[in-house]
Design a binder for these strands. Structure first.
Ligand SMILES: [Mn+2]
Ligand SMILES: [Mn+2]
Ligand SMILES: [Zn+2]
Ligand SMILES: [Zn+2]
Lengths: 141, 141
DNA sequence: TCTCAGATTAGATATATTCCAAATAGTTCA
DNA sequence: TGAACTATTTGGAATATATCTAATCTGAGA
Protein backbone atom coordinates (compact mmCIF):
# COMPACT_ATOMS: atom_id res chain seq x y z
CA UNK A 1 0.00 0.00 0.00
CA UNK A 2 1.47 3.32 -1.00
CA UNK A 3 0.92 6.76 0.49
CA UNK A 4 -2.13 7.52 -1.60
CA UNK A 5 -3.74 4.24 -0.64
CA UNK A 6 -3.24 4.96 3.05
CA UNK A 7 -4.76 8.38 2.57
CA UNK A 8 -7.73 6.92 0.78
CA UNK A 9 -8.33 4.22 3.34
CA UNK A 10 -8.35 6.80 6.11
CA UNK A 11 -10.74 9.12 4.35
CA UNK A 12 -13.08 6.35 3.35
CA UNK A 13 -13.62 5.84 7.05
CA UNK A 14 -14.16 9.51 7.83
CA UNK A 15 -10.73 10.11 9.33
CA UNK A 16 -8.69 13.07 8.18
CA UNK A 17 -5.32 12.12 6.84
CA UNK A 18 -3.19 14.17 9.18
CA UNK A 19 0.60 13.86 9.11
CA UNK A 20 0.62 12.30 12.60
CA UNK A 21 -2.09 9.79 11.82
CA UNK A 22 -0.49 8.92 8.52
CA UNK A 23 2.85 8.38 10.25
CA UNK A 24 1.33 5.94 12.75
CA UNK A 25 -0.38 3.98 9.99
CA UNK A 26 2.68 3.93 7.75
CA UNK A 27 4.92 2.81 10.60
CA UNK A 28 2.64 -0.06 11.57
CA UNK A 29 2.37 -1.19 7.98
CA UNK A 30 6.09 -1.49 7.46
CA UNK A 31 6.61 -3.62 10.59
CA UNK A 32 6.13 -7.34 10.62
CA UNK A 33 6.43 -7.30 14.38
CA UNK A 34 3.67 -5.98 16.64
CA UNK A 35 4.77 -2.66 18.11
CA UNK A 36 3.46 -1.26 21.39
CA UNK A 37 2.03 2.25 21.66
CA UNK A 38 5.30 3.36 23.25
CA UNK A 39 7.35 1.90 20.39
CA UNK A 40 5.07 3.54 17.86
CA UNK A 41 5.37 6.87 19.65
CA UNK A 42 9.14 6.61 19.66
CA UNK A 43 9.39 5.54 16.03
CA UNK A 44 7.13 8.32 14.81
CA UNK A 45 9.23 10.83 16.69
CA UNK A 46 12.46 9.74 15.09
CA UNK A 47 11.24 11.35 11.87
CA UNK A 48 9.16 14.38 11.06
CA UNK A 49 6.39 15.12 11.68
CA UNK A 50 6.60 14.68 15.42
CA UNK A 51 3.63 13.54 17.41
CA UNK A 52 2.74 13.78 21.08
CA UNK A 53 2.09 10.77 23.24
CA UNK A 54 -1.62 11.62 23.51
CA UNK A 55 -1.93 11.90 19.75
CA UNK A 56 -0.22 8.58 19.23
CA UNK A 57 -2.65 6.92 21.62
CA UNK A 58 -5.60 8.78 20.09
CA UNK A 59 -4.63 7.74 16.61
CA UNK A 60 -4.09 4.13 17.56
CA UNK A 61 -7.54 4.13 19.14
CA UNK A 62 -9.12 5.74 16.08
CA UNK A 63 -7.40 3.35 13.69
CA UNK A 64 -8.55 0.38 15.73
CA UNK A 65 -12.12 1.70 15.78
CA UNK A 66 -11.97 2.21 12.02
CA UNK A 67 -10.90 -1.40 11.58
CA UNK A 68 -7.57 -0.51 9.97
CA UNK A 69 -5.48 -1.67 12.90
CA UNK A 70 -5.84 -4.62 15.22
CA UNK A 71 -5.07 -4.36 18.92
CA UNK A 72 -3.65 -7.39 20.68
CA UNK A 73 -3.89 -7.52 24.47
CA UNK A 74 -1.12 -9.49 26.14
CA UNK A 75 -1.48 -10.42 29.81
CA UNK A 76 0.71 -8.28 32.04
CA UNK A 77 2.18 -6.30 29.18
CA UNK A 78 1.41 -3.31 26.99
CA UNK A 79 -1.04 -3.79 24.13
CA UNK A 80 0.44 -4.46 20.70
CA UNK A 81 -0.75 -3.18 17.35
CA UNK A 82 -0.95 -4.70 13.93
CA UNK A 83 -1.90 -3.01 10.68
CA UNK A 84 -4.39 -5.48 9.23
CA UNK A 85 -2.78 -6.90 6.13
CA UNK A 86 -3.85 -10.38 5.18
CA UNK A 87 -6.05 -12.16 7.67
CA UNK A 88 -4.07 -14.20 10.17
CA UNK A 89 -4.06 -15.72 13.63
CA UNK A 90 -1.64 -15.03 16.46
CA UNK A 91 0.84 -16.91 18.55
CA UNK A 92 1.69 -15.39 21.95
CA UNK A 93 4.73 -16.55 23.91
CA UNK A 94 4.05 -17.47 27.54
CA UNK A 95 7.54 -16.41 28.56
CA UNK A 96 8.41 -13.22 26.68
CA UNK A 97 5.01 -12.04 25.48
CA UNK A 98 6.18 -11.90 21.85
CA UNK A 99 3.28 -11.82 19.39
CA UNK A 100 3.81 -13.63 16.09
CA UNK A 101 1.63 -14.18 13.05
CA UNK A 102 0.27 -17.59 12.12
CA UNK A 103 -1.14 -18.19 8.65
CA UNK A 104 -4.87 -17.86 8.44
CA UNK A 105 -7.09 -20.89 8.23
CA UNK A 106 -10.79 -21.24 8.69
CA UNK A 107 -11.99 -22.28 12.16
CA UNK A 108 -15.20 -24.08 12.87
CA UNK A 109 -17.73 -21.78 14.54
CA UNK A 110 -19.50 -22.97 17.68
CA UNK A 111 -23.13 -24.00 17.64
CA UNK A 112 -25.20 -20.82 17.40
CA UNK A 113 -27.18 -22.07 20.39
CA UNK A 114 -23.96 -21.67 22.40
CA UNK A 115 -23.81 -17.99 21.47
CA UNK A 116 -27.28 -16.96 22.54
CA UNK A 117 -28.24 -13.34 21.98
CA UNK A 118 -24.69 -12.22 21.45
CA UNK A 119 -23.63 -10.61 18.20
CA UNK A 120 -20.40 -12.21 17.03
CA UNK A 121 -18.20 -9.99 14.87
CA UNK A 122 -15.17 -12.21 14.68
CA UNK A 123 -13.64 -15.39 15.81
CA UNK A 124 -9.91 -15.47 16.35
CA UNK A 125 -7.55 -18.21 17.38
CA UNK A 126 -4.68 -17.59 19.74
CA UNK A 127 -1.92 -20.13 20.05
CA UNK A 128 0.08 -20.09 23.25
CA UNK A 129 3.32 -21.70 24.23
CA UNK A 130 6.98 -20.82 23.75
CA UNK A 131 8.32 -18.87 20.80
CA UNK A 132 11.27 -20.38 18.93
CA UNK A 133 13.76 -18.35 20.93
CA UNK A 134 12.27 -19.18 24.34
CA UNK A 135 11.84 -22.86 23.40
CA UNK A 136 15.53 -23.10 22.51
CA UNK A 137 16.57 -21.30 25.68
CA UNK A 138 14.39 -23.63 27.74
CA UNK A 139 15.69 -26.90 26.27
CA UNK A 140 19.34 -25.90 26.57
CA UNK A 141 19.25 -25.99 30.36
CA UNK B 1 -14.25 -29.01 44.75
CA UNK B 2 -14.26 -28.78 48.53
CA UNK B 3 -11.74 -27.22 50.86
CA UNK B 4 -9.60 -30.33 51.12
CA UNK B 5 -9.47 -30.63 47.35
CA UNK B 6 -8.28 -27.05 46.99
CA UNK B 7 -5.63 -27.68 49.61
CA UNK B 8 -4.45 -30.80 47.83
CA UNK B 9 -4.34 -29.18 44.41
CA UNK B 10 -2.20 -26.36 45.80
CA UNK B 11 0.21 -28.66 47.55
CA UNK B 12 0.55 -30.97 44.60
CA UNK B 13 2.00 -28.01 42.78
CA UNK B 14 4.39 -27.03 45.56
CA UNK B 15 2.33 -24.12 46.84
CA UNK B 16 1.61 -23.83 50.53
CA UNK B 17 -2.04 -23.64 51.33
CA UNK B 18 -2.05 -20.31 53.15
CA UNK B 19 -5.30 -18.72 54.25
CA UNK B 20 -4.85 -15.86 51.78
CA UNK B 21 -4.04 -18.11 48.86
CA UNK B 22 -6.88 -20.43 49.72
CA UNK B 23 -9.28 -17.49 49.89
CA UNK B 24 -8.31 -16.31 46.40
CA UNK B 25 -8.73 -19.77 44.95
CA UNK B 26 -12.03 -20.39 46.73
CA UNK B 27 -13.40 -17.02 45.64
CA UNK B 28 -12.51 -17.58 41.99
CA UNK B 29 -14.04 -21.04 42.04
CA UNK B 30 -17.40 -19.87 43.28
CA UNK B 31 -17.74 -17.15 40.60
CA UNK B 32 -19.05 -17.83 37.15
CA UNK B 33 -17.97 -14.35 36.10
CA UNK B 34 -14.36 -13.41 35.54
CA UNK B 35 -13.23 -11.16 38.39
CA UNK B 36 -10.40 -8.67 38.13
CA UNK B 37 -7.53 -8.60 40.61
CA UNK B 38 -9.16 -5.58 42.26
CA UNK B 39 -12.49 -7.40 42.61
CA UNK B 40 -10.72 -10.42 44.03
CA UNK B 41 -8.84 -8.25 46.48
CA UNK B 42 -12.04 -6.60 47.61
CA UNK B 43 -13.97 -9.86 47.92
CA UNK B 44 -11.27 -11.56 49.93
CA UNK B 45 -11.21 -8.61 52.29
CA UNK B 46 -14.90 -8.75 53.00
CA UNK B 47 -14.24 -11.93 55.00
CA UNK B 48 -11.43 -13.13 57.18
CA UNK B 49 -8.61 -13.71 56.62
CA UNK B 50 -7.71 -10.37 55.14
CA UNK B 51 -5.12 -10.08 52.43
CA UNK B 52 -3.03 -7.19 51.17
CA UNK B 53 -3.16 -6.00 47.62
CA UNK B 54 0.37 -7.27 46.91
CA UNK B 55 -0.50 -10.71 48.26
CA UNK B 56 -3.61 -10.89 46.13
CA UNK B 57 -1.58 -10.10 43.02
CA UNK B 58 1.18 -12.50 44.09
CA UNK B 59 -1.27 -15.31 44.63
CA UNK B 60 -3.05 -14.71 41.35
CA UNK B 61 0.33 -14.84 39.62
CA UNK B 62 1.33 -18.04 41.45
CA UNK B 63 -1.99 -19.72 40.72
CA UNK B 64 -1.71 -18.84 37.04
CA UNK B 65 1.85 -20.20 36.93
CA UNK B 66 0.65 -23.39 38.61
CA UNK B 67 -2.02 -23.77 35.95
CA UNK B 68 -4.90 -23.59 38.42
CA UNK B 69 -6.15 -20.23 37.23
CA UNK B 70 -6.42 -18.71 33.79
CA UNK B 71 -5.65 -15.06 33.12
CA UNK B 72 -7.59 -13.28 30.42
CA UNK B 73 -6.13 -10.09 28.99
CA UNK B 74 -8.70 -7.60 27.73
CA UNK B 75 -7.56 -4.64 25.66
CA UNK B 76 -7.58 -1.41 27.62
CA UNK B 77 -8.91 -3.02 30.80
CA UNK B 78 -7.69 -4.90 33.85
CA UNK B 79 -6.90 -8.58 33.45
CA UNK B 80 -9.59 -11.06 34.46
CA UNK B 81 -9.19 -14.38 36.21
CA UNK B 82 -10.90 -17.69 35.87
CA UNK B 83 -10.44 -20.77 38.04
CA UNK B 84 -10.02 -23.49 35.47
CA UNK B 85 -13.05 -25.70 35.73
CA UNK B 86 -14.07 -27.43 32.57
CA UNK B 87 -12.21 -26.41 29.47
CA UNK B 88 -13.88 -23.61 27.56
CA UNK B 89 -13.41 -20.73 25.16
CA UNK B 90 -14.18 -17.06 25.73
CA UNK B 91 -16.35 -14.36 24.31
CA UNK B 92 -15.20 -10.77 24.91
CA UNK B 93 -17.54 -7.82 24.41
CA UNK B 94 -16.17 -5.02 22.24
CA UNK B 95 -18.17 -2.45 24.12
CA UNK B 96 -18.07 -3.31 27.83
CA UNK B 97 -15.16 -5.74 27.99
CA UNK B 98 -17.30 -8.43 29.64
CA UNK B 99 -15.75 -11.89 29.41
CA UNK B 100 -18.12 -14.83 29.02
CA UNK B 101 -17.63 -18.56 28.70
CA UNK B 102 -18.34 -20.46 25.50
CA UNK B 103 -18.57 -24.25 25.52
CA UNK B 104 -15.36 -25.97 24.60
CA UNK B 105 -14.84 -27.57 21.24
CA UNK B 106 -11.70 -28.85 19.64
CA UNK B 107 -9.98 -26.48 17.23
CA UNK B 108 -7.96 -27.72 14.33
CA UNK B 109 -4.27 -27.02 14.80
CA UNK B 110 -2.44 -25.31 11.95
CA UNK B 111 0.00 -27.18 9.74
CA UNK B 112 3.09 -27.86 11.87
CA UNK B 113 5.13 -26.20 9.13
CA UNK B 114 3.31 -22.97 10.02
CA UNK B 115 4.47 -23.25 13.62
CA UNK B 116 8.17 -23.78 13.03
CA UNK B 117 10.28 -24.27 16.13
CA UNK B 118 7.61 -23.00 18.48
CA UNK B 119 6.24 -25.17 21.25
CA UNK B 120 2.44 -24.90 21.28
CA UNK B 121 0.87 -25.51 24.68
CA UNK B 122 -2.67 -24.56 23.84
CA UNK B 123 -4.92 -23.24 21.22
CA UNK B 124 -7.83 -21.07 22.28
CA UNK B 125 -10.60 -19.36 20.43
CA UNK B 126 -11.80 -15.90 21.32
CA UNK B 127 -15.11 -14.65 20.02
CA UNK B 128 -15.60 -10.93 19.80
CA UNK B 129 -18.63 -8.80 19.28
CA UNK B 130 -21.40 -7.50 21.52
CA UNK B 131 -22.61 -9.27 24.63
CA UNK B 132 -26.37 -9.82 24.96
CA UNK B 133 -26.80 -6.69 27.07
CA UNK B 134 -24.80 -4.42 24.75
CA UNK B 135 -26.45 -5.89 21.65
CA UNK B 136 -29.88 -5.10 23.08
CA UNK B 137 -28.78 -1.60 24.10
CA UNK B 138 -27.37 -1.02 20.63
CA UNK B 139 -30.45 -2.12 18.70
CA UNK B 140 -32.89 -0.14 20.87
CA UNK B 141 -31.52 3.19 19.66
C1' DT C 1 -10.46 33.79 2.60
C1' DC C 2 -13.42 32.27 6.44
C1' DT C 3 -15.21 28.96 9.36
C1' DC C 4 -15.34 25.37 12.51
C1' DA C 5 -15.27 20.50 13.58
C1' DG C 6 -11.67 17.63 13.91
C1' DA C 7 -6.99 17.08 15.50
C1' DT C 8 -2.86 18.04 18.24
C1' DT C 9 -0.34 19.28 22.38
C1' DA C 10 2.01 19.25 27.14
C1' DG C 11 1.21 18.02 31.21
C1' DA C 12 -1.68 16.30 34.79
C1' DT C 13 -4.26 12.47 36.22
C1' DA C 14 -6.04 7.83 36.55
C1' DT C 15 -5.58 2.97 36.59
C1' DA C 16 -3.13 -1.33 36.85
C1' DT C 17 0.60 -3.82 38.42
C1' DT C 18 5.07 -4.75 40.46
C1' DC C 19 8.77 -3.96 43.65
C1' DC C 20 10.80 -3.57 48.20
C1' DA C 21 12.52 -4.63 52.68
C1' DA C 22 10.84 -5.83 57.07
C1' DA C 23 7.79 -8.83 59.65
C1' DT C 24 5.39 -13.21 60.05
C1' DA C 25 4.12 -17.92 59.75
C1' DG C 26 4.77 -22.91 58.11
C1' DT C 27 7.96 -26.91 57.99
C1' DT C 28 11.75 -29.63 58.99
C1' DC C 29 14.55 -31.80 61.86
C1' DA C 30 17.82 -32.09 65.86
C1' DT D 1 9.85 -28.90 71.77
C1' DG D 2 12.22 -25.22 69.54
C1' DA D 3 15.96 -23.53 66.54
C1' DA D 4 16.65 -22.77 61.76
C1' DC D 5 15.20 -22.21 57.36
C1' DT D 6 12.20 -20.63 53.81
C1' DA D 7 7.88 -19.31 51.85
C1' DT D 8 4.65 -15.92 52.40
C1' DT D 9 2.58 -11.65 53.77
C1' DT D 10 2.50 -6.70 54.32
C1' DG D 11 2.03 -1.49 53.52
C1' DG D 12 3.76 1.63 50.97
C1' DA D 13 6.59 3.28 47.27
C1' DA D 14 7.56 2.88 42.57
C1' DT D 15 6.68 1.82 37.84
C1' DA D 16 4.06 1.06 33.68
C1' DT D 17 0.31 1.96 30.89
C1' DA D 18 -3.34 4.69 29.32
C1' DT D 19 -6.59 8.56 29.42
C1' DC D 20 -8.12 13.25 30.29
C1' DT D 21 -8.03 18.32 29.95
C1' DA D 22 -8.21 22.72 28.23
C1' DA D 23 -5.79 25.56 25.16
C1' DT D 24 -4.36 25.85 20.53
C1' DC D 25 -3.91 24.59 15.80
C1' DT D 26 -5.18 22.83 11.00
C1' DG D 27 -7.24 21.89 6.88
C1' DA D 28 -11.45 20.81 3.92
C1' DG D 29 -15.28 22.86 2.27
C1' DA D 30 -18.24 26.99 1.65
MN1 LIG E 1 -0.35 -9.94 13.52
MN1 LIG F 1 -13.93 -18.47 31.59
ZN1 LIG G 1 9.35 -16.05 23.86
ZN1 LIG H 1 -21.12 -5.76 26.55
Amino acid sequence: MDGEAIKRSLEERGLRCTPQRYAVMAFLMEQNSHPTAAETFEAVNRVDPRSSRATTYNNLRDLVKAGLVREVAVEGRAARYDAQGVRHHHFICDRCGEVEDVDWYEVRKPASRALGKRYVRECEVIFRGLCARCARRRSSR
